[in-house]
Design a protein around this nucleic acid. Structure first.
Length: 105
DNA sequence: AAAGTGACGCATT
DNA sequence: TAATGCGCCACTT
């Protein structure tokens, strides 16, 4: 029997559960996977993702800022995707995580 | 093998 | 609240 699925696989599996109009932070994903302190690995997992079914644009940093923007070609692309889902940005280009943070049941 | 890099986060200043 | 430094771990050179 193989052990647990690769960390990257578990990251993508969790992110895929994030509904439209909601976001999660890198650190939150790591914490939910039982790997606190490994937020950077979450970023690498998303960077290596090739599956368009994974809503990786819904993952932001702990301050509600867009970090993976350049991976979409331009930060504005990710922002447009989120705004289209109903996620609001403040004057500093940040999301109010108190309102839009998603948490699993 | 060692050092540098990065889709991050936290403590301290 | 913002800015800085350090910890973290996989990947690259």
């Amino acid at each position: 029997m193989g052990g647990e699925p690769p960390f990257a696989r578990r990251v993508l599996d969790l992110v895929r559960q994030v509904p439209a109009g909601r976001v999660v932070s890198y650190g939150q994903v790591a914490d939910l996977l039982g790997a606190p302190g490994r937020a950077r690995e979450v970023g690498w997992a998303l960077a290596g993702n090739r599956d368009p079914a994974i809503p990786c644009h819904r993952v932001v940093n702990r301050r509600g800022e867009l970090s993976g923007g350049h991976a979409f070609g331009h930060p504005m692309v990710q922002r447009a995707l989120l705004e289209d889902e109903g996620v609001a940005f403040d004057g500093d280009g940040r999301i109010d995580l108190a309102r839009f943070r998603w948490e699993p049941d």
